[in-house]
């Protein structure tokens, strides 16, 4: 690991000001991606700014029909939260599948979405649920937040504060994990709200994306059968040593059917 200056600010303003003044600052949330990256010398920040002591970034609260999850809330906390389990159980299920138990004890919602790994789980939930991300400067809809591989709309001096999740009528997440890393080879999050269905896919492309054709079919009939014979185009999908683009395209339909089955309580074929 290259040397860096470590800071533990005690307010959001101080964290932002440290980022502004750093030559090349990096925000540290749970550190489950950043620290392994630093160990491999794949990054060389001049300053590492730890958000652990910044107040107001953790916790899960309910506001009417929405859940608000603080950016520094760990995956383990979301997975074990009675409030999340009662309101959006699919979100708790997803959080309980991130990495392994030790990663979930450290890794955070804000860190995951700010990093936007193409195979991360949370981006699929945010996009399918129509979540809204609150930063120190603005609010951004999840549809506009994730812009590319490891890219988001966040500016350098911008810090994720919380995420607001509307409660869906029905939702489920189904992923085919890489058995070594447990990142998604393909993960599909399906959410239904009245006549609207949103289908978000992670692991298969450069960044999370929606599938309008699947959404339209499921809006007409919310059943795994509605996706029978649907072929997702493999063009542009990830193609690597873990899975070919064709295989990922096939998995998208399979995971989508399973997610719909889980969300609707009907059996998948």
């Amino acid at each position: 690991m290259y040397a860096f200056e470590y800071h533990r600010p005690t307010s959001l303003d101080e964290a932002v000001s440290l980022m502004v003044n750093a030559e090349d600052g990096a925000l540290l949330a749970g550190g489950q991606t950043l620290i392994p990256t630093l160990k491999q010398r794949l990054a060389q920040p001049s300053d590492v700014i730890d958000l652990a002591a910044v107040p107001g970034l953790t916790g899960i609260t309910q506001d009417g029909n929405e859940l608000i999850v603080g950016a520094m809330t760990t995956h383990a906390e979301v997975a074990a939260s009675d409030l999340v389990r009662a309101t959006i159980p699919a979100l708790a299920e997803l959080a309980g599948q991130v990495g392994d138990a030790q990663v979930r004890n450290r890794g955070t919602l804000g860190g995951s979405i700010a990093n936007n790994d193409p195979a991360a789980d949370y981006p699929a939930a945010l996009v399918a649920l129509g979540a809204v991300i609150k930063t120190n400067r603005r609010t951004v809809a999840a549809d506009d937040f994730f812009t590319g591989m490891f890219e988001t709309v966040l500016d350098t001096e911008e810090v994720v504060v919380s995420v607001r999740f509307p409660k869906p009528q029905r939702a489920a997440y189904c992923k085919f994990p890489n058995p070594a890393s447990r990142y998604a080879i393909v993960g599909v999050f399906v959410a239904r709200n009245g006549p609207t269905v949103r289908v978000a896919v992670t692991g298969a492309g450069q960044s999370v994306f929606r599938l309008p054709e699947l959404e339209a079919r499921l809006a007409a009939r919310f059943s795994p059968d509605a996706l029978a014979n649907v072929m997702v185009a493999a063009d542009g999908l990830n193609d690597d040593l873990h899975a070919s683009a064709d295989y990922r395209a096939h998995l998208i339909t399979v995971m989508a059917k399973r997610a719909v089955a889980a969300a609707s309580g009907s059996p998948a074929d």
Partner: peptide, 10 residues
């Protein structure tokens, strides 16, 4: 936690 993924200062 994995103590190889936590800084001592943390």
């Amino acid at each position: 936690v994995k103590s190889c993924a936590v800084l001592a200062v943390q």
